[in-house]
């Protein structure tokens, strides 16, 4: 009964935070705007239309979606590896994305598909290809342990980083382009990106929601899961695919944003326990809210200059997380 009340309380808090976060994000920026400006813009006044609806709103939506993707991807991978250190980028998708972005700059790609810069597309492709290759290689091993997958991922990520560093070394002016991917930023977010990532994010969420009970079985160990009727191999593959899609799309629109995918699932697990049916939903929601506010702070603290959003996620997330970990009476991780 108490747990149920707690759940309702958490949902309400998140709902209020989400709404407040969107309103704040719409109202505050380097251009001074008021609530009445916003109402006027809603009613069709042109003055601040572009600022509200072509810059601030898509940016808020993108940061929420990316936060949700990272939170969910983190929850999936922590469950997948049964390792609380796993984060969305653990299999090298971030290194793969950075490589793609720098490659695009190096090759001087000018191609622009709707919504994505050539660097975004390259980042998406390389990060996806890298994780797929990692998976296929570790599949071939005689002992298909998740450690093999993890280590192959780390090694492949290191290789991708080495190539990235080499390219940056050869062309110092590509460095600035790479920084965006290494630090993460939403400063270039637009509607087209929303339309491109939204379907994938929604599909991934639906898949996770449906597969959450299976993840609960996997948490008991592969053998137990098999004996309980869970098709272990295909389930694992699906989860890996989904988390890779989520991480790759996140990286391709916003660069590498650390910490969200690591601490959000943890925090939710500390609050709600290890049931993945709840864990998935709330990790995604809380991740979205966390990143929405982080980006809001990143662009307003030193306005008009922006700081990388990763700075905020770590600066605010880490102390809160340490507090949660040390709070007496919290459930076991």
């Amino acid at each position: 009964m108490r747990a149920k009340k707690f759940l309702v309380g958490l949902a309400l808090t998140l709902l209020i935070l989400t709404l407040a976060g969107f309103i704040l994000s719409l109202l505050v920026g380097p251009v001074k705007t008021t609530a009445s400006d916003l109402f006027a813009a809603f009613r069709g006044q042109e003055r601040y239309q572009d600022i509200f609806f072509r810059l601030r709103l898509p940016r808020a939506i993108i940061s929420f979606l990316v936060g949700a993707s990272l939170g969910l991807a983190g929850a999936i991978l922590q469950g997948y590896f049964r390792n609380s250190l796993a984060d969305p980028f653990i299999l090298g998708s971030s290194s793969g994305a950075a490589l793609g972005a720098v490659l695009a700059a190096e090759l001087g790609f000018k191609l622009v598909l709707p919504g994505f810069s050539s660097q975004g597309i390259m980042a998406l492709i390389t990060s996806f290809v890298l994780v797929t290759v990692v998976y296929l290689i570790s599949e071939r091993r005689r002992f298909r342990t998740s450690e093999a997958l993890l280590l192959t991922g780390i090694a492949a990520g290191a290789l991708a980083s080495a190539i990235t560093s080499f390219l940056i070394f050869r062309r110092p002016d590509a460095y600035e382009q790479a920084v965006f991917w290494l630090l993460g930023s939403f400063s270039l977010a637009g509607w087209s990106q929303v339309w491109v990532i939204l379907p994938y994010v929604l599909l991934s969420f639906a898949a996770c929601y449906l597969l959450a009970p299976q993840m609960n079985l996997l948490a008991l160990g592969d053998e137990v899961a098999t004996s309980l009727g869970c098709p272990v191999k295909s389930t694992r593959r699906t989860f890996l695919l989904v988390s890779t899609i989520l991480a790759s799309f996140s990286v391709s629109v916003a660069g590498i944003i650390g910490f969200v995918g690591l601490i959000t699932p943890h925090t939710i697990r500390l609050l709600l326990g290890p049931d993945h049916r709840r864990l998935f939903v709330y990790s995604a929601w809380a991740g979205g809210v966390f990143l929405l506010y982080s980006d809001f702070l990143a662009r307003t603290i030193f306005s008009p200059a922006e700081i990388p959003v990763g700075v905020i996620t770590a600066a605010f997330g880490a102390p809160f997380f340490i507090y949660l970990l040390n709070r007496r009476g919290s459930r076991e991780i």
């Binding site: 380097p30 601030r56 600035e176 400063s187 270039l188 008009p304 200059a305 922006e306």
Partner: peptide, 16 residues
Amino acid sequence: TIVGGLVDPNLEIIQS
């Protein structure tokens, strides 16, 4: 009006 730096101009200020 300063719109930002070489790599981080602020879109909102430019638009405004």
